Amino acid sequence: MLTVHHLQNSQSERIPWLCEELEIPYDLKLYERDPILAPASLKALTPMQASPVITDEETDPDFVLSESGAIVEYIIHKYGSGRLALPPSHPDYADYLHWFHFANGNLQPAMSGLFRVAVTDVDPEHPIYNLAANAVRKVLAHVEQRVGEATWLAGDEFTAADVMNFWSLTGMRVFTPLDLSGYPNILTYMERIANRKAYKVAMEKGDRGRESCLGGPPPKVFAGLGKTYTIFL
C-alpha cells in the first residue's frame, strides 16, 4: 500500500491531491506542525527531515521517497499509467516541463525567500527585502500572464504542473501573506482548481478546517510563528 505522510498546511498537499486526481488507493498519515516545522516522527523518515514523504510497501518494505517533484513523477508513472504528465510527442510537452519545474525552481523559492526576509523584520527599504520582493513580483507576473492565455499551466490540459504550483499560491500565503487582488487571471485560475472534485476531497481529508487561501486578500499570518508581520510588494 502506498502511504502518504502529509504535513498539514504544507506543499505535501500535492501528493494526496494527485492521488485523488488519479483515483488510486493510498493511506494518508497526517502530521501537525510542531510548531512550525515537521514533528520528530516525520523528521525521522528522511535525512532532510521534511515532507512530503511516501512509503510504498508494495515496492519494498523499506522504501521511502521524499521531494515532492520526485514523488509526483513516481506516482504518475508507477500507478497512474502516465496520466497527468505529457509525453514528448505532445505539442505542449515543453510547456509542461517548464511549469512542472517552475514550482520548485522559481515560484516556491521566491515565496519562501520573501517569507524568511519579512519574518526577520528587515526594513522594506533594505536591498535584501527589495531583492526578495522583486523575485516574487517576477514569478507572479509570469504566472498571471500564462493563465491569462491558457486554461492550465501546460496548455489546454490539466496536468501535474498545476498540482505542483498551486500550493505556493494558496497555503504558502499563510506564511507569505500576499494580496493577489491585482492578479485577476491567477484568481480565476485558482477558482477553477478549487472547484475540482479531487482537490476538494484531498483538502477535506488532509487539511480540513485550514483557513481558505483562495481569495485575493491575504490570509492571516501563521499563528505558530508567535508574531505578526506585513509583506510589502
Rank of each mutant, 00 (worst) to 15 (best):
S10W: 00
S10L: 02
R14D: 11
I15E: 05
I15K: 01
Y26H: 10
D27R: 07
D27S: 12
L30E: 09
Y31G: 13
I36R: 02
L42M: 09
E57T: 15
E57R: 08
D60P: 03
G69S: 14
G69H: 06
L84S: 07
H90Q: 08
W99P: 14
A103G: 15
M111Y: 06
M111P: 14
L114P: 05
V117N: 04
A118D: 04
V119K: 03
V119Q: 03
T120L: 13
T120M: 13
P127R: 11
P127D: 09
N130D: 10
A135K: 14
V136H: 01
K138R: 14
H142K: 05
R146G: 01
V147I: 11
E149R: 05
A154T: 07
F158Q: 07
A160S: 15
A160H: 03
D162K: 04
L169T: 02
L169D: 06
M172I: 01
S181K: 02
S181W: 01
G182D: 15
Y183M: 04
L187E: 08
T188M: 10
E191L: 01
N195C: 12
A198M: 08
A202W: 06
M203G: 02
E204P: 00
E204A: 15
R208W: 00
G209Y: 02
R210S: 06
S212V: 00
S212D: 11
P217H: 11
V221A: 12
T228Q: 15
T228C: 03
F232K: 11
